[in-house]
Amino acid sequence: MADTASIAADLRDRLIAEPEVILEDRDLMRALIAANERAMGANIVDLRGIAMERLEARLDRLEDTHRSVIAAAYENLAGTNQIHRAILRMLDPTAFEEFLKNLGGDVAQILRVDCVRLVLETVQEDRDPSLERVGEVLCVRDPGFVDDYLAGGRGAPERQVVLRQIHSDDGSSIYGEAGAYIRSEAALRLDLGNGRLPGMLALGAEDPHQFRANHGTDLLAFLGGVFERAMRRWLA
């Protein structure tokens, strides 16, 4: 009994010296509040305890929000770094064929997409047959194709960047054989300068959730802005 009393006394002295030990332990505080409620009896309503429970619930929600904000910030930072690395790699080539090969290779890997297509509109009479031989990344289409593709056949496109899920036959006209596996895409409309027909950069992914309509498009719009300026240099 003496040993027990001595241990209890040491514990009591420590708690008196450092009361924050109890205050910072949520489980211990719950146990103390529950013990206090039992001591008061069942016919007494502890308004202070109810208030504390509500404050605790609000604190839990605030902590969840805080964690969500931090996670979103880290994700946005990672996305920004990814776009920056893709742009730097995209600007490395000094020849157009190398530029196109780079799009389907290193740039696609950095962006973590499974297929990249550059669509250029040209009039049939002015079409250069050599464009068809520079690789599968480049697709040459008739005037009006880009806007119709972005709008999905529903009039003029409302956005410069379209994120959507697609079916196996939706993207076959630009993705070729890879279209059988592409399930989501980001389509970026390109302004190639005055007097030129528009173009489009399409990023296709096998993951149906990689590009969704409710995702933000700011970073992709920035990528498209840099890309179209690079294309004007090649077309000059």
Rank of each mutant, 00 (worst) to 15 (best):
M1D: 07
D3E: 14
D3C: 11
A5Q: 14
S6E: 15
I7M: 03
A9S: 15
D10G: 13
D10H: 14
R14E: 04
R14N: 03
E18K: 13
P19V: 02
R30Q: 14
I33W: 15
I33A: 15
A35Q: 09
R38S: 11
R38E: 07
A42C: 11
N43Y: 13
D46L: 04
L47R: 15
R48H: 15
R48A: 10
R54Y: 11
L55Q: 10
A57Y: 09
R58W: 13
L62G: 06
T65V: 07
H66Q: 12
I70H: 09
A71D: 07
A71H: 00
A73T: 14
E75K: 06
N76K: 12
L77E: 15
L77W: 13
A78N: 14
N81A: 08
Q82H: 03
R85G: 04
R85A: 15
I87S: 14
I87G: 08
I87D: 10
L88I: 05
M90K: 02
L91H: 11
T94Q: 13
F99H: 00
L103Y: 03
D106N: 07
A108W: 09
C115Q: 12
V116H: 05
R117I: 00
L120P: 06
E121L: 01
E121T: 08
Q124G: 05
E125C: 01
D128P: 06
P129G: 00
L131P: 01
E132A: 09
R133M: 15
L138G: 08
V146Y: 00
D147E: 10
Y149S: 08
L150G: 03
L150W: 00
G152K: 05
R154C: 11
G155N: 06
G155R: 06
P157C: 13
Q160E: 14
V162D: 03
I166A: 05
S168Y: 04
D170H: 07
S173Q: 11
A178E: 03
Y181W: 11
I182Y: 03
R183Y: 04
S184G: 10
E185T: 10
A187Q: 00
R189Q: 04
R189I: 01
L190V: 12
L190Q: 06
L192M: 07
G195S: 03
P198S: 01
A202C: 04
G204R: 00
E206K: 09
P208T: 04
P208I: 12
H209W: 11
Q210S: 12
F211T: 07
A213Q: 05
H215G: 02
G216Y: 01
F222P: 06
G224W: 09
G225E: 06
V226L: 05
E228T: 01
R229V: 12
M231N: 02
R232A: 01
W234R: 12
